[in-house]
Design a protein around this nucleic acid. Structure first.
Length: 157
DNA sequence: GCCAACGTTGGC
DNA sequence: GCCAACGTTGGC
């Protein structure tokens, strides 16, 4: 069954529009260095899963577009690169510890802001809104995904 | 820049 | 295995 995810990116690094402008509208989602988020990518994500593309650490945090998972998970090569900020001295190519995955951008829309999301009773259980949540990848229910991509994204236009 | 919340590390 | 110290996230 198709699953749904919210993935946080800093738009200064990669925005939804950057992803839409990339070859095949597809970017490699690398740099995840949290085991729980890694496990979602490595163990649960499947091609064609739906993705809410979230902009974080920016002026207007919120959901800025929709994407889909476009590959199987594969080792994040930045973990082996001494010059990368994502270098992990404990990772070895024979035993990769961190995972990347390809994400294909489908659509951008005016940001559905964090306060918009918090104001929706329908979304009160949304994982990304839970108190203290810091995970950069969180599961989204099919109802939440549908509500956001059909109703909220239209309202924002 | 502040700071709450949470994850990781490492001494014991 | 405990837990204090430290580092990171991310909204504000």
């Amino acid at each position: 069954m198709r699953q749904y995810w919210l993935m946080k990116s800093e738009p200064d690094e990669v925005s939804i529009d950057d992803a839409l402008a990339a070859p095949k509208r597809t970017i490699s989602w690398f740099g995840v260095r949290n085991y729980q988020a890694r496990n979602f990518m490595r163990d649960l994500m499947k091609v064609d899963d739906g993705v809410l593309f979230y902009h974080s650490s920016c002026a207007v945090p919120g959901i800025a577009g929709v994407a889909r998972i476009a590959s199987a998970p594969y080792p994040d090569t930045t973990q082996f690169d001494k010059k990368s900020p994502y270098f992990d001295p404990k990772a070895a190519p024979s035993e990769p510890r961190w995972t990347a995955i390809d994400v294909e951008a489908l659509e951008s829309f005016p940001v559905i802001t964090l306060s918009d999301l918090k104001a929706e009773p329908t979304l009160e259980k949304m994982r990304v809104l839970a108190r203290g949540n810091r995970l950069s990848i969180t599961p989204v229910t099919s109802d939440e995904f549908r509500f956001i991509t059909t109703r909220l994204s239209k309202r924002a236009r």
